[in-house]
């Protein structure tokens, strides 16, 4: 491994550095889920299952960590959501034997936007953000009712690029997959037994009809992930990557997206006026006495 890391050269199209030991990762993530939930006083978990690969993988990990009977999937479609997404989400639930609650998001979204002439009149990113936050709101409400810890499903690619809604799908109590790039999560999903129909489909946030992640991001996950890996994990300077033959526009786009979205990855900043301040120098671990 040590030799292998030293031997890694940043080379466009070479995805081999992204390969993971899925068996090891699965063990680490299941232990993480068990341990951190127990510390927070939970033995049950709840997760929004969209029909996509990320939330399917999290549902599988959760079933392994807590037992299927202690996991609830929330299926929260809107009227324009892809029907196949709902079918796939149900398939995950059925396959794992976990609990599920379906709740149609349409009435509350449409009621909110009615005063502005309906959702069709609304900027689609804005409408998508609203849906993501409604899903978060329901996740946390059901979490309280069921006494189940809300799990996050944002992967490392999304987190780094800021490709998610702050306080929406980016919100959770604990997130087992946030340190895995999409490409790596796909590899793990195979080992976990996520259905082929989910693993094979084109990734989409499904916030409007025909949306796909890769067209919106302007590059394939493979290209994005390998650039992020070298830039973030290996600390290779963007200039070096361009010199190594990576596309300049891709490198600049990725670097700029990461920079611009930093605010989404940190708690809100607090104006410091006193001697000791939350978020600045009141530095207690979250697992305080846990």
């Amino acid at each position: 491994m040590i030799e292998r890391l030293g031997a890694i050269r940043a080379k466009p199209g070479d995805l081999s550095p992204l390969r993971i030991d899925e068996v090891l990762v699965r063990k680490m993530l299941v232990a993480f889920l068990r341990d951190e939930a127990a510390k927070a006083g939970f033995r049950k978990a709840i997760v929004n299952v969209s029909g996509g690969i990320d939330s399917a993988a999290v549902a599988h990990l959760a079933a392994e960590a807590y037992g299927a009977e202690n996991v609830t999937a929330l299926l929260l479609p809107y009227r324009t959501s892809d029907p196949k997404a709902l079918t796939d989400a149900r398939e995950v639930v059925r396959g794992l034997g976990i609990g599920a609650e379906e709740h149609d998001l349409t009435p509350q979204i449409d009621a909110y936007f009615a005063a502005e002439g309906g959702v069709e009149k609304i900027d689609r990113v804005r409408a998508g953000n609203k849906m993501a936050r409604e899903r978060m709101s329901i996740l946390y409400d059901r979490s309280q009712v069921l006494g189940a810890i809300p799990l996050g499903t944002s992967n490392k690619t999304e987190l780094l690029l800021g490709y998610g809604t702050i306080f929406g799908d980016m919100a959770s109590a604990i997130n087992p997959v946030g340190d895995l790039y999409k490409t790596q999560l796909r590899e793990l999903a195979g080992l976990l037994g996520v259905p082929e129909s989910i693993r094979a489909k084109v990734p989409s946030a499904d916030l409007w009809a025909g949306q796909t992640d890769e067209s919106e991001l302007g590059a394939s996950y493979a290209d994005l992930d390998i650039v992020l890996y070298h830039m973030v994990d290996r600390r290779v300077h963007p200039v070096e990557l361009i010199e190594a033959g990576f596309d300049r526009r891709l490198i600049e786009m990725v670097r700029e997206r990461v920079r611009r979205s930093q605010y989404k990855r940190v708690p809100p900043i607090v104006a410091k006026v006193s001697l000791r301040t939350v978020g600045h120098d009141f530095l207690y671990p979250r697992d305080w006495e846990r």
């Binding site: 491994m1 040590i2 292998r4 890391l5 550095p17 390969r19 993971i20 030991d21 090891l24 990762v25 680490m28």
Partner: peptide
């Protein structure tokens, strides 16, 4: 802390410590 999940080896930190 355990870190380093690359394929084809031990956990990165574990390998270093064992060495």
């Amino acid at each position: 802390p355990g870190r380093g999940i690359a394929e084809g080896g031990d956990l990165g930190t574990a390998e270093s410590c064992r060495l």
